[in-house]
């Protein structure tokens, strides 16, 4: 899923300081799972904003709503009738949701309420880690199912650097060395010989390097 982290409330308060009618808009997908932008977080943020406005002696209306998704027009349409009441929206969706909402409601300021951080998984409640960088050309088949693009600090394709120490990455003893994981896994798969296959230069044109990307699927298009 897309993992996001909360933005400091001070930062959100600063963005909203000139607005009087605000909608705090959550998303029921990834940001709900990673507890950064679901219904609960919408409630807490809205409550904090209301108290802050009160204390400053400002008359500010703050409403709460959480959509099924903000990356789908169908769900964003649900606020079409009510959006005019607001002069700003704080979206607690990922960066995709924030932008998609802004595209649908062109003349409304939409502020981000979270920092979108990575594509990752839940290690345990409250701990998420990165797994994928969406490079557009998956090489997991050759690396034992562990991605050196996302998980090696230097995205090395042909093996560990000289800084790998007791399974940890040279940048931080809390971070696993991706290449240690790959080697361990190749061993478990009895494929360690594969380590010596040279990995050719990567075609980054399917990555961010190639500019904004698009997937068109004629087979499912309507």
């Amino acid at each position: 899923m897309i993992v996001a982290d909360k933005k400091p409330i001070e930062e959100i308060i600063e963005c909203l300081k000139d607005h009087k009618n605000i909608l705090v808009l959550g998303c029921n997908e990834c940001v709900t799972v990673c507890e950064a932008g679901g219904k609960k977080e919408v409630g807490v943020l809205a409550s904090a904003l209301r108290m802050n406005a009160r204390k400053e002696g400002k008359e500010v209306k703050i409403d709460e709503l959480t959509l099924e998704r903000q990356c789908d027009r169908e769900y964003l349409d649900e606020i079409r009738d009510s959006i005019d009441q607001y002069d700003a929206v704080v979206s607690l969706a990922c960066g995709v949701g924030v932008q998609f909402t802004a595209e649908q409601y062109h003349d409304k300021p939409i502020y981000p309420g979270v920092n979108t951080t990575f594509l990752g998984a839940t290690e345990e409640r409250g701990v998420w880690t990165e797994r994928c960088q969406a490079c557009g050309q998956c090489i997991l088949a050759t690396t034992g199912g562990i991605c050196p693009v996302a998980r090696c600090a230097k995205r090395l394709f042909n093996g560990p650097c000289g800084g790998s120490t007791t399974g940890k990455c040279e940048i931080n003893a809390e971070v696993d060395c991706a290449w240690q994981l790959i080697v361990d896994r190749l061993k478990a798969l009895e494929r360690l010989d594969d380590y010596e296959k040279l990995c050719p230069l990567k075609d980054w044109s399917t990555d961010r390097a190639g500019g904004p990307r698009k997937v068109v699927r004629e087979d499912v298009k309507q």
């Binding site: 230097k154 995205r155 090395l156 394709f157 042909n158 093996g159 650097c161 040279l198 990995c199 050719p200 230069l201 990567k202 980054w204």
Partner: peptide
Amino acid sequence: NVHDIDSIQ
């Protein structure tokens, strides 16, 4: 950082 290619490449 860039890391377009690695040292072996």
